[in-house]
């Protein structure tokens, strides 16, 4: 189903939803994050797949977020994420730290429809000590002592992805970023913005089909040109370091962050640019 724009997608995301966002190098829908800020979404629980970047900091700064589960939050070369750090310090958000492969594994369990999956490592990390939802068991197949972590399946309420293109049938091309397919398979709803719409079905093209997320998993799509900006989109456009550096400078203070929102999120021209 094609909707008018990212704001129409954002209108379908309920307050309090568990919203999964890929990191800055892997096709997050920043356009949808901006639309959620405009809609004034509340109490979102964000999941970084497996880490978090610009869109997460933006949503936190705008007061849309109650909780973040992630393996790291950073603005890449622009440094630490200022609104995330401020909200953590102020106790305004709950932070549930994880480690990258654990998040992949929890989504893979959901994708397979099994209640949990094991993962090596982690034992002795304080991450585990702070995750009452993770368990350690003896490997039932080993005759010697072999403790291993069990992770519960995780199904996000909504996944927000920015693809390169969508076809008439609603298939979305994300190239080699195959962890997005796992995310789509694991999520209850998938909302996608894309650079452009193409005719026909990409699944009929053997060269494009392996880079697609099938329409089976996708609830709604909207065209949002430069919808990943200021982060990169594969070979379509690069990371806008100047923009993110400017964001990082402004977002050091609440007032600066508000100025950023006014200029780049709420301004009519910013909406038109999407």
């Amino acid at each position: 189903m094609f909707l008018q724009d990212a704001d129409a997608l954002a209108a379908t995301v309920p307050d309090g939803a568990l919203l999964a966002l890929p990191p800055d190098n892997s096709l997050p829908s920043v356009a949808l994050a901006r639309a959620l800020v405009r809609r004034g979404a509340k109490r979102l629980r964000l999941l970084g797949v497996p880490v978090s970047g610009f869109a997460t900091d933006l949503l936190i700064g705008a007061g849309c977020v109650a909780e973040v589960e992630t393996s790291a939050v950073s603005l890449g070369e622009a440094g630490f994420a200022p609104r995330f750090t401020a909200a953590l310090k102020a106790g305004a958000i709950t932070v549930r730290d994880a480690t990258c492969p654990a998040i992949h594994t929890m989504l893979q369990a959901a994708e397979k429809g099994v209640p949990f999956m094991p993962l090596r490592g982690i034992i002795g990390s304080d991450i585990l000590a702070n995750r009452p939802d993770w368990q350690v068991i003896q490997n039932p197949f080993s005759e010697t002592e072999d403790r291993i972590v069990l992770l519960p399946a995780k199904s996000p309420d909504v996944a927000a992805i920015h693809g390169v293109m969508a076809d008439d049938e609603g298939n979305v091309w994300v190239g080699r970023r195959r962890e997005l397919a796992t995310l789509a398979h694991a999520s209850r709803r998938v909302l996608v913005t894309v650079e452009r719409r193409v005719p026909g079905s990409m699944l009929e093209d053997e060269r494009l089909a392996p880079g697609c997320i099938s329409a089976t998993y996708i609830e709604a799509i909207a065209v949002a040109e430069r919808g990943a900006h200021p982060v990169a989109l594969l070979d379509e456009y690069g990371f806008d370091a100047a923009h993110v550096t400017e964001y990082a400078r402004l977002a050091k203070t609440e007032a600066g962050f508000r100025e950023y929102l006014d200029r780049f999120v709420f301004a009519p021209r910013a909406q038109a640019a999407e």
Partner: peptide
């Protein structure tokens, strides 16, 4: 205190797995 109430760093990334494996 956990999760970094003094100076918060970005996070653990994959270290809790990579260091073992």
């Amino acid at each position: 205190e956990w999760p970094g109430t003094g100076v918060r760093f970005p996070g653990s990334f994959g270290s809790a797995f990579m260091y073992f494996m």
